[in-house]
Simulated scan of single mutants.
Amino acid sequence: MRYWKTLALLPLGLALGGCNLVVLSPSGDVAAQQRDLVIIATVLMLLIVVPVMVATAMIAWRYRQSNKAATYTPDWDHSTQLELLIWAAPLMIIICLGAVTWMGTHLLDPYRTLGRISADRAVTPQDKPLEVNVVALDWKWLFIYPEYGIASLNELAAPVNRPLDFRITSSSVMNSFYIPALAGQIYAMPGMQSRLHAVINKPGVYRGFSANYSGAGFSGMRFAFHGLSDAEFASWVEKAKASGNQLGKPEYLTLERPSANEPVRYYASVDNDLFRAILNMCVEAGKMCMSEMMAIDARGGMGMAGISNTLPLAYDKFAGRGAVFGAEPSFVAGGVCLPGDQVTRMAENSSPTVLAPLDWTPLQGRGLERPGLMRPSKASFIPLPTSKSNS
């Protein structure tokens, strides 16, 4: 019988063999500190959970119906010693757990620059961080190295024991940048920049992927992260430069289109303004950048004339993503009431002006001067565009 019981447990052992313990055995100092925080918190909670479970089993066994030797005291209702134990022990655990969590939350803040390379080595002024700009595309990862003027697709490399400064954004929908061996996952959001400071301490090839579902090609959003020596990383940079590929704004707009399971690709040169344009959603020629829109808003906006400001901003990128609206870019002017085919605009100290019927060709977003060149007036009205020509 014992033989059959042991045999029945074998499938459970096989299932455990498929577990990946990289989170509990990482190769980066930040991930190692996060692991320690998880272990400490788990042990502190088990100090309460385990005794309660053991006491529950012991009480159920001692006071079972068949145990006639158990003391029966139906009038018992209070014990000072037991009350102290029940309340003091969990309170101490909560205090310790709160203190550890508070310190870990601040010390492991992904926006916080690293204070150490490893447990026995502090960061010095000579340890210059390697900046890597990360862009989550549909459905692939683009890595830009501003210091070297190169980029790579679906492959990331970094020197061992050198601080890493990741600046992370997305081209369309929310994703999550995650290398379990390096650090915790950080969200990538369009129009926003997330930060992650980390370091890899052991050479090797590690798995990176998106931890946030983002559509049909999500399962292919995986990449290899190479932890290299300084000499190996220099060779990797030279390999990228030898590829001869260029990554300018036109090439990026082609790369941005949804595609899955793309092979690793290198770019020998990158447009210096590309990441800023991606972050501000203005890679396409003639589109107003978010920073320019915010500059206008910071000055108080432009009233009804500001409606035209929204036309150059198409956050869901109909044309770039091949939506049902067709290849021609089309935008919607928000906040405009359309009675029939006419728009009525009210000017300050003037009578209503009724515009002619609109031409329902795709609105391209024209008519505003660049921020800094335009001075707001008492009544500044810019007609809705009907032309397809670029301004």
Rank of each mutant, 00 (worst) to 15 (best):
P74D: 02
L82R: 14
A60I: 06
Y72V: 04
W76I: 07
D75T: 10
R64L: 01
K68A: 12
T73Y: 05
I86P: 05
N67G: 00
R64W: 00
I86Y: 12
L91Y: 02
W76Q: 08
L82Q: 12
K68Y: 10
I59L: 09
S79N: 14
V52C: 04
P74E: 02
L82S: 11
Q81W: 13
K68T: 11
V54Q: 08
E83A: 09
W76D: 06
A55L: 14
T73M: 07
S66T: 09
T80H: 15
W76T: 07
T71M: 04
M53N: 08
M53W: 10
P74N: 04
Q65P: 05
W87T: 11
Q81L: 15
R62M: 02
W61V: 05
N67V: 00
Q65H: 13
A89W: 05
A57D: 08
V54C: 11
E83G: 05
V52D: 01
M53S: 12
I59G: 03
K68H: 15
M53R: 09
T71F: 01
D75M: 08
S79A: 08
M58W: 14
D77K: 15
A88G: 06
R62V: 03
N67K: 03
S79R: 08
M92H: 04
W87C: 10
T56R: 15
V54R: 14
S66C: 06
L85T: 08
H78E: 13
W76K: 09
A88C: 09
A89C: 05
P74R: 04
L85W: 09
D75C: 05
T56D: 15
M92I: 15
L82I: 06
W87L: 13
T80N: 13
Y72R: 05
A70I: 00
P74F: 04
S79T: 08
T80Q: 15
Q81Y: 14
L84T: 06
H78P: 10
N67C: 02
D77F: 15
L82E: 13
S79E: 08
R62A: 00
A60F: 06
W87G: 06
N67W: 00
A88L: 10
P90M: 02
V54W: 10
L91F: 07
A69C: 08
P90T: 01
E83M: 09
M58G: 07
M53H: 07
T73I: 11
D75W: 09
R64M: 02
T80D: 14
Q65D: 10
W76Y: 11
R62T: 03
R62F: 00
